[in-house]
Write a protein that binds this DNA or RNA. Structure first.
Lengths: 247, 247
DNA sequence: TGACCTGGATTGTCTGACAATCATACAATC
DNA sequence: GATTGTATGATTGTCAGACAATCCAGGTCA
């Protein structure tokens, strides 16, 4: 199961700093080093792996960038990266890749109605209150900015209602990609607040009744409505979502 | 917008290796260093930033792990990370986070029907051929393994038909999370090949006709059917998707 | 032209060192 | 007793210089 073709197995000798990184990563992922603990000091690692400190340091830098540890003062402590970071890295990767606004919207329209459907099956009473609260707040929102913020919060809340971390991360990624442009859309739509309010209310009703079909359908309508805003606003849907630097 | 509460802004002096990393990252993201080019040699960077080589190396390690460069022989060359890598990092992040199989399936069911709907609007003739080819191959597949591979390939193909990179990445992430477990399911289902074949055929027909509703509906049915397999197979849907090491 | 060889360039690793910073414990002050 | 200053050791960030292994390019030879 190794040698390639004609002969000797490719003696791939990976550099020592990669071994250091690998060993530490493994220790963390396997739980031998658990959250909150700090990794051994550089000198300790030198002894442990029998390499030089500069080598250890290079390994540690890889670990650092991988998001498995954070500098807490002087020590590096192990963290289970929050889901938000997963979402951020996804968005970042996509943004780097010349994703266009149209892609983001299509993805929203493909994903969120199904998410709303799932939400209808999963919703609990606390969630209902939360959604209702957002809608209530929106009904009193004055400025465009607040309207946008609450619209997005609502979408995120729907994803959270499902209690599904995968959807949570994905919708969060969409949110990050979306945020920069939604403002213009809302500004362009006539009566944006009322339209959004209507949609949220209908979705809330459907969720209240546990009516998955209605929840899905209204979410789809809602998003289509917003998308129409792009046309009205004259936003070029083919322009790229810029790389964003909100660390 | 800085100082916390009562007083002075924290004088944070970032280490030099971070500056090196930042400078290189910026150069790449801004396009001053473009794809395929190799970054300057370590000595060159030493001169440029007026720091020591070990410092430069630490910076380079950060860059390396960030996925913006890859070792090509001895040089580090700039790459725009492929979408696959974005998907991998997303999956990795999710897997690390104790995502359960049930989460992955719910996400599939929430996302893929909408994706199929979009595919119906976007599909081109070349895509139709490709999908038909996969289905044809499946109809001749003997082993379980091939059946699984083709089923997954079909789902990926649907996502690709949409031409939407966001969906592409997300479905790819789902695929990675799913792969490990689907085998068991297919083994447990009675007549797995025929069931899957039926579904693919129906979806193909719907796509052929540009019938978004039918495409969506059949995809949903298809996935529900597969999910049922988990019950039959006795797979514990609440068990966590393990962290996987396929680099 | 194509296979082969050689020397310089570049990376991976080591050795050793020092200043800055952090964590503490202890002493001095109010 | 609580707060503040100080001494001490541990740890990190950075520097300086070195060497072997490997890669690359250009020249040589068939």
């Amino acid at each position: 199961m190794s040698a390639s073709g004609n002969g000797l197995a490719p003696v791939k000798k990976r550099p020592a700093y990669l071994l250091v990184f690998g060993a530490l990563e493994d220790a963390i992922l396997s739980g031998r080093l658990s959250e909150g603990e700090s990794i051994p000091t550089e000198m300790e690692l030198c002894r442990q792996f029998d390499v030089q400190r500069s080598t250890v340091r290079e390994g540690i830098r890889l670990l650092e960038q991988s998001g498995l540890v954070v500098r807490h003062g002087k020590r590096l402590t192990v963290v289970r990266p929050k889901t938000e970071e997963a979402a951020e890295s996804t968005s970042r990767g996509l943004a780097r890749h010349g994703v266009r606004f149209i892609d983001v919207w299509e993805a929203n329209i493909a994903i969120l109605p199904g998410t709303a459907r799932l939400a209808a099956r999963k919703i609990k009473s606390a969630d209902r209150k939360r959604l209702a609260a957002i809608t209530a707040e929106l009904s009193e929102a004055g400025e465009t900015e607040a309207t946008v913020a609450l619209s997005i919060e609502y979408l995120m809340a729907i994803a959270e209602v499902t209690g599904n971390r995968v959807l949570g991360v994905m919708v969060h990624s969409l949110k990050l990609l979306l945020e920069s442009s939604l403002q213009q859309v809302v500004e362009a739509l006539p009566n944006p607040r009322d339209r959004i309010l209507r949609a949220q209310t209908e979705i809330n009703t459907a969720l209240q009744a546990g009516d998955a079909d209605q929840a899905q359908a209204w979410m789809a309508r809602h998003l289509e409505d917003l998308r129409r805003g792009y046309l009205v606003a004259g936003v070029d849907l083919n322009s790229e979502v810029g790389t964003f630097d909100k660390l």
